[in-house]
């Protein structure tokens, strides 16, 4: 519907019905301190009961409110349709810190997981930020990022920027004072999801599967443990985030099933970059980008031999996990346990 259609629609229906059709419009009214307005009349008539002075404080008059309201509906009706899609992402190499060419042409399809490895300060974040800003040979590295095989013009870059990439890092926290349910509902609302209840439930179950220690949906997000928070963030990103690309800065190994986490994210048909030094994660990826001297040194496809070693690594990890659990429950650690 165009703005004009919305104006006709809003004029012909009681405000209460409009709010039923577009629940998000409640927020609009609250933003302009109009939440108390009568719902039993169409908006123009309802506005007649509001004092001009109140509207004036927002720099608006009655006509202005009507127009803004319809623009708001149009915007969010559109946003509902347009979600960013990226079936593939291509990295065309630039230069490293020594000005040597990277000679890289790497295409990653949705559902693929790529790990990024390299010493601290080698340029891993630089790569991730090139991806985030959709570099077009205009960042210090000279790299170019293609989406679905095509270069992007300035406008597309700005439009996609911010929506393309979701990020997860170790120092992220929840700062809202909400329960898990309220938190998920709030995010679902922001996405204008129709089946809120369903998505919330799915996300919650998924987070609980990833978390070492289970939590209830009525727990405050700020009271979750580190592992539980991370589990909720991952479940939420996989199920609810619109962004087709996810950048992850290490998943710590406390209180969360990392293998399941990566599998879940890959299943969500997203393109995943994970910066990690954890062999369990790196070998579970499809490809591995090695960074050296600020540039991509090489790209390793995970081969059968590497994958086979996963089982052995998992056994080691298992042993460590067992030792941790023993420590936690106050038991004694002996050499016997390691045999």
């Amino acid at each position: 519907m165009s703005v004009k259609d919305f104006i006709n629609y809003v004029r012909s229906k009681n405000l209460g019905d409009v709010l039923q059709d577009y629940p998000i419009a409640k927020d609009f009214l609250a933003n302009f301190r109009l939440d108390g307005i009568t719902k039993a009349l169409p908006l123009p008539q309802a506005l007649a009961t509001v004092e001009e002075e109140t509207l004036d404080e927002f720099g608006l008059n009655r006509e202005g409110v009507l127009l803004k309201f319809c623009l708001f509906l149009e915007d969010f009706a559109q946003a509902e349709e347009a979600t960013g899609t990226a079936a593939s992402l291509t990295i065309l190499g630039g230069f490293n810190k020594l000005k040597e060419p990277e000679n890289i042409n790497l295409t990653i399809a949705s559902g693929e997981v790529v790990s990024v490895v390299g010493p601290t300060g080698s340029g891993k974040s630089r790569l991730l930020s090139d991806i985030e800003c959709l570099a077009q040979r205009d960042t210090p590295t000279g790299r170019q990022i293609l989406i679905n095989g095509a270069a992007l013009d300035e406008l597309q870059r700005f439009e996609m920027g911010g929506k393309l990439v979701a990020q997860l890092s170790q120092n992220m926290n929840f700062v809202m004072d909400l329960t898990v349910r309220e938190f998920l509902e709030m995010h679902a609302k922001g996405r204008l999801a129709k089946n809120t209840g369903e998505i919330v439930e799915k996300c919650f179950l998924c987070a609980n599967e990833l978390a070492g220690e289970k939590f209830s949906i009525d727990t405050k997000v700020t009271q979750l443990s580190g592992g539980q928070s991370r589990a909720l963030m991952i479940a939420d990103t996989a199920n609810m985030s619109n962004s087709p690309v996810i950048l992850i800065d290490e998943i710590e190994n406390a209180g969360i099933d990392r293998r399941q986490a990566v599998e879940l994210l890959a299943k969500s048909e997203k393109i995943i970059f994970i910066s990690t030094h954890d062999p369990l994660l790196a070998l579970r990826a499809d490809k591995r980008i090695v960074i050296k001297n600020g540039g991509i040194d090489k790209v390793i496809e995970i081969c059968e031999a590497e994958r086979k070693s996963l089982a052995a690594i998992e056994r080691i990890d298992h042993t460590l996990q067992m030792l941790r659990n023993r420590l936690r429950t106050g038991e004694i650690i002996t050499e016997e346990l390691l045999k």
């Binding site: 708001f72 997860l168 938190f183 990103t237």
Partner: peptide
């Protein structure tokens, strides 16, 4: 300060920005 809150909170936050300023460009 988006680096210290969850992705969801960033998304909800920018959604709330869009609510009051739909034509503005949002940059983190």
């Amino acid at each position: 300060k988006g680096d210290i809150v969850s992705q969801a909170e960033r998304e909800v936050f920018s959604f709330n920005v869009k609510q009051v300023n739909s034509s503005g460009k949002v940059i983190f």
